[in-house]
Design a protein around this nucleic acid. Sequence first.
DNA 1: GCCGCCTATCGCTGGATGTGATTGCCGCCT
DNA 2: AGGCGGCAATCACATCCAGCGATAGGCGGC
Lengths: 294, 294
Amino acid sequence: MDASDLRVFAAVARLGGMNRAAAELNTVQSNVTARIRHLEDLLKATLFERHSRGVALTAAGRRLLPYAERVAQLLDEARRAVRDDGRPKGELAIGSLETTAALRLTPVLTAYARAWPEVDVALRTGTTQELIHEVLARRLEGAFVCGPVEHPDLEETMVYREELALLTPPSMRSLDQVFAARDLKIVVLRAGCSYRQRLEEILVRRGVVGLRRLEFGTLEAIFGCVAAGLGVTLLPRALIGPVWGKGRVRVHQLPAKEGRVATLFVRRRDAFVSSALDAFLELARRSPPRAAPA
Amino acid sequence: MDASDLRVFAAVARLGGMNRAAAELNTVQSNVTARIRHLEDLLKATLFERHSRGVALTAAGRRLLPYAERVAQLLDEARRAVRDDGRPKGELAIGSLETTAALRLTPVLTAYARAWPEVDVALRTGTTQELIHEVLARRLEGAFVCGPVEHPDLEETMVYREELALLTPPSMRSLDQVFAARDLKIVVLRAGCSYRQRLEEILVRRGVVGLRRLEFGTLEAIFGCVAAGLGVTLLPRALIGPVWGKGRVRVHQLPAKEGRVATLFVRRRDAFVSSALDAFLELARRSPPRAAPA
DNA sequence: GCCGCCTATCGCTGGATGTGATTGCCGCCT
DNA sequence: AGGCGGCAATCACATCCAGCGATAGGCGGC
């Protein structure tokens, strides 16, 4: 049993047929058949049930499949590990919350791109949940997400502490005024956004009912929307000032317990840490002081 | 790059030479050389430095080695997973503390051997540290050890709660008398024993100084030694009675905080749980009530 | 300078791997 | 019912590469 056998096996299992697998593997059906039979002989177990529309995994096949996938992943990772001689290069795919990207990573990314021109950086944004899912699926080397996170396969390191503030139109003078409002609208980035949940909790705890929600895909749109008096939102306080002009929205401080949130960098415990990632985290850790919250 | 390439690579790395590797792999040196060169071409990296007495890993080779080992392990595990059709059979290697084996596992093992005659059970005893090391090295599928244990790669499940008692010669009537004794001797199983450390802590906290230690390799020897008046020991209270005759030693109850200890079953999080192990834990969980502490 | 131990290289061979054609099975459509 | 399309199994054949044995060449110790 060797890696290429498992590659053939996995393709057949995934596509549900030897013809289809042969097409994908750029070979012929007879070859695929022969290799599967060979593998079955080797393991002394039937891996597929053959039926007229293709094949289906047997119980034994189902047990083998995760190993086939894991071995393929490992070999892939091994190749990258060997190539990686300590000087960052190649591809670096990381994820981040939209807010963290805007607030913290912009200077880091530009500095990184300048320092390590051989690296092709891909920064993808999403919600904490989405990002964690991508990291677990090994499509991202790691991601900046909203804490707390607990998962046995993930290693978390605290990188930033954010102070969240309630942003309202300038006409709302106090928090009490916000909580007393009827038909309050909250403006959030997207459905699964970590801050949205927190904002709803805060308002519900104050007895606010009948919330309306607006979803906008970009921070700029949210900001504009709040400034125009359409609703309120919850965002890192430090975004105001360095990123957007002051004065167009009113910033309400929250009690420490509700306003403090940690930004964690998560990555798979068992995954290889490329030099490119290592260098990125190194830079991120010394993020410029001007972006630090007051 | 394929699994057999990595096997050759790992052998060369381990043995430090292509000739030696060829001998171990039952092939010829030219073949090993060719395959290593092939692998190096494939990865576009030099894996070994050749010198006159053999070869040595380069930095790239050192990076590859752990993957080679992991892939070999995975393939091995895959074979076992495929073979394992749900009915326990094959080999089952588990570890246990001496005391847990004597107190808890004896009936489980006999019942297990009767229920699943196709399994070859190997029970190895050792200290918590030793057992954990063996489990991590995949030489044991799991082990019963003394809690608490914290390791990211291990999954722990609490299986028993033991009450530890101080065993002394019958002549020692009270705990105070024990603590007041001069030149107190403690009798322990072996150097790394979990209970030994706990016993020393208990005594030190009571101000006992000048401890002498005796190490005996078997529980029976320890028991005999205490009965003969040579020293005191700390063992699960439930051992007295079901396993050894009462009356020959005096059993001193300890405060709950010091006397309670958990027995955990630990296994590698990422390892395959064989049907044989599964069935064993199933049996162990319903361990006979007569062995339960009072 | 020779010997022992090591790796590199070469030509050869056999078996494993891949190919293309054919057969036979099953379900679906006509 | 019969033909058709999609599928896997099988076979004979081609190809290729892993493994073999022999030899060359490098290095250090005796």
